[in-house]
Nucleic acid binder design. Structure first.
Lengths: 214, 214
DNA sequence: TAAGATATGAGAATTATTTCACAAATTTGG
DNA sequence: CCAAATTTGTGAAATAATTCTCATATCTTA
C-alpha cells in the first residue's frame, strides 16, 4: 500500500517510526481517534515537522486541517516498516535470556513467531522450552530449509555469537537480532541489530555525570 | 581523570563509546594489548576517524605511530562515561521481566547495583526476589532517602510507567531506564533511556523489506 | 642517529539531518 | 457559501555529524 517515495531513509527515521507506533498504540488504547503532529510530537519528544518529514518518506497519511487518524496512521506506519505480516524467527542460545525470550508471548503477538530454538550444548539439546525442542545448532541449515525463517535471534555468550551468526547466515537468514555483548561480522545482505541495555545504562551514567552537556 | 573538552557531545558518540568498550573488552579477553583505530573501526563497523573524533571529545588517549593500549583505552572511556564507579539503582515493577533483571548478576558485575525492588501489587509486596524484599511503590521516597539510589529501572506495564516515573522523580532519582513500551514525561533534569527490542525487530523488518534503501 | 614507516589528532570539506516557514487543503461557524 | 482557523506537506535554510586530509609525533631498523 504506502509506497516508499525516495531511495534513502535515515536510520533515525526508522527508529522514530517505531516510537510513533508505540505512542499511537497507547493513544488508541486510551480512546484517541485523531491526533495532529503537534501533540503527537510532544508525546514522542520530537519536533512536529520531524514527524511530518518522517512520514513524508512513505506517503501522505494526514488530513490537512484535521491531523492523523490514529488507526490509519498505525496501519500506514506498520505497513511501511513491513511489520504488518508474520515474521518467522529462530533463536540460538538457550540460556537464561534465551529461555525468557522463548517464553515471552509478546513475540507472537507482534508477529515475530519463534519457530526454532538451537543450542550447541549437548545437555540442552532435546530439552523442550515453550513448546519447542532444542536442536543442535549444526542442524540450523536443514531446519530453516523446512521452516523458512528469515530472522535469527542470538542469545549466546559473546564468544559464541560469531559462530551462531555464521550458522544463521549459512542457513539463509537475512536479519539478526544480537543480544550477545559482542559485535558480529556478516555479509552485506544480512542486517544486524544489537540489543544491549548496558549501553543505555552507560548513556544514563554519562548524562548524569555531565548534566551540563545536554 | 580525562576531562571533557568541549561542551556538547553528540548522543551518537556516547552510543559508539559503549560499543568501543564492548569490543575492546572482547579484544582484551582474547589477549590483544594494542590496537590502532583502523582495525578497531572495522570491528565496530564504523569509520576510523569517527573513533578518533569521538575520543578527541575527551582527551588524547592514543600514541602516534602506535595506536591505543587496550587496557588504558577501556579505562579512559569508562571514566569518560562515568561507569568507573558504582551506581545504585532501584527497580519498579516486579513482573516477569523485573524478576529476570533482579536475578541478572551482570548488573552488579558492571557496577549497576540494584538496591531496591518496588511494586504496587499487594500480592507482590513482601515477597523476596534475589535477596530483596519487594516494597510498596509509595514508599520509594523514604527508601531512596536511605539507600541513595540515583537510577530507576521501570519494568511495569505501559499504563503504569508514568506513575512509576513520577514516584522515582519525586524520590530524587535523576536517571531512568524504561523497559515499559510507553513514553514517559519527566522534568528536564531527569534523563530517560528507553529499551524496547521490538523497535530493533521493526528496524530489521524494514531493512529486510527494503533491501535497496541501504 | 637519521630515514622510513606508521598512526594519531584536528582543521577543512563534505554529507546528512533537522528545523523553519509557508502554500495548499480541509473543516467549521456564521 | 465565504471567511477564519487549522494543520498538513514540502522546499529552503540552518544545524549537526561524518569523512577526508595532512601535519605532527612516535617507533623501528640500519
Amino acid at each position: 500500500m504506502p509506497q516508499q517515495k525516495s531511495e534513502h531513509i535515515p536510520r533515525a527515521t526508522i527508529q522514530r517510526l517505531a516510537v510513533y507506533v508505540q505512542v499511537l498504540e497507547n493513544l488508541q488504547r486510551e480512546g484517541t481517534e485523531v491526533i495532529s503532529s503537534e501533540p503527537l510530537a510532544k508525546a514522542c519528544n520530537v519536533n512536529a515537522s520531524q514527524i511530518r518529514k518522517d512520514l513524508a518518506y512513505f506517503g501522505e497519511f494526514g488530513v490537512r486541517g484535521v491531523g492523523y487518524y490514529v488507526k490509519n496512521l498505525i496501519a500506514s506506519i506498520t505497513s511501511a516498516l513491513g511489520v504488518d505480516r508474520e515474521w518467522r524467527t529462530v533463536l540460538v542460545g538457550v540460556g537464561n535470556l534465551g529461555k525468557a525470550l522463548l517464553n515471552h508471548k509478546e513475540f507472537r503477538l507482534r508477529g515475530f513467531n519463534i519457530v526454532g530454538a538451537f543450542d550447541c550444548d549437548p545437555f540442552k539439546i532435546g530439552e523442550e522450552v515453550s513448546g519447542l525442542e532444542v536442536v543442535c545448532t549444526k542442524r540450523l541449515r536443514e531446519m530453516i530449509g523446512d521452516n523458512g525463517a528469515e530472522i535469527g535471534i542470538i542469545t549466546t555468550p559473546p564468544e559464541r555469537a560469531q559462530r551462531a551468526a555464521n550458522h544463521l547466515v549459512e542457513a539463509g537468514i537475512n536479519g539478526i537480532l544480537n543480544f550477545a555483548p559482542s559485535r558480529i561480522t556478516v555479509p552485506d545482505h544480512v542486517n544486524v541489530e544489537y540489543v544491549d541495555f548496558f549501553h543505555h545504562l552507560y548513556a544514563l551514567s554519562f548524562n548524569i555525570t555531565h548534566p551540563n552537556s545536554k
